[in-house]
Simulated scan of single mutants.
Amino acid sequence: MQTAVVRLLDGATPRADARRNVERLVTAARAAVDEVGTAVTAHEIARRAGVGIGTFYRRVPSRDALLEAVLAGAIDEMIELARGARAADDAWPAFCSFAEDYVRLRATSCGLNEALAGAGGLALSDRIGELRNEFRRLVRRLQATGALREGLTNRDVAFALAGVVPQTRTLGLTAGPAQWRTTLRIVLDGVRA
């Protein structure tokens, strides 16, 4: 959360109460983006933070700036997870760990899923491009070590992981809260050499 707060403050040194309000707004925005997605309103974020709409606009430049800071933080986390997996000694277990964290983040945040799909109209394309590049490097490492099924590309693996996040219902069945874990195991078995 600290990174998102720093981005919003842009070098300013506000009073302690103002900083706490920004932190509350960031926390509320993160929860709202996870639950509602990028369509969440400034009023909803302010309500969740326990502040008035005037405080919202005094403390953050705009709703979009707040959402971009929150989602950029989540994407940065994914980038670091990919880098860590790529640097690990054993490529396949590291990739499996990355995949679980990546899918968990996507499965628990409507807004992150929207942002990674290019929806929401937020300025995140540079960060998403950086994540795409790290993901590509990670898949290349899997290919180089022979851990990935032959013929699969980084595009194939990216869509396979994105497809793990379940719909809430299919064929009259309702997905349980951990359905994504089962589906991820099936996908990982399918992409492994």
Rank of each mutant, 00 (worst) to 15 (best):
G84T: 12
T145L: 00
P166L: 05
M1C: 05
F95P: 09
D34S: 13
R15S: 12
G146K: 06
A119H: 09
D17N: 11
V157S: 02
V51D: 11
R185V: 10
E130Y: 03
A117Q: 09
L112H: 04
V33F: 08
T13L: 09
R155N: 13
G52H: 13
Y102Q: 14
I53P: 12
L71I: 11
V6P: 00
A107S: 14
D89Y: 08
L152H: 12
L66S: 00
V191M: 09
D17V: 12
R149T: 04
D17T: 15
Q2Y: 11
A28W: 14
V36P: 03
L142M: 14
R137Y: 09
A144F: 02
E68G: 02
S97N: 13
T108K: 09
A162C: 13
S109I: 01
T183R: 13
G163V: 07
L8C: 06
A94F: 02
S109L: 04
A65H: 11
P93F: 00
R59F: 11
A94N: 05
A46M: 05
A29C: 15
G172Q: 02
L138Y: 03
E134D: 15
F56Q: 11
V60L: 07
L131D: 07
R137M: 14
P61N: 10
Y57I: 07
F56G: 10
E130C: 06
M1Q: 07
G190W: 00
L142H: 01
E114T: 00
P166D: 10
W92S: 04
L142R: 01
T27C: 01
Q143C: 11
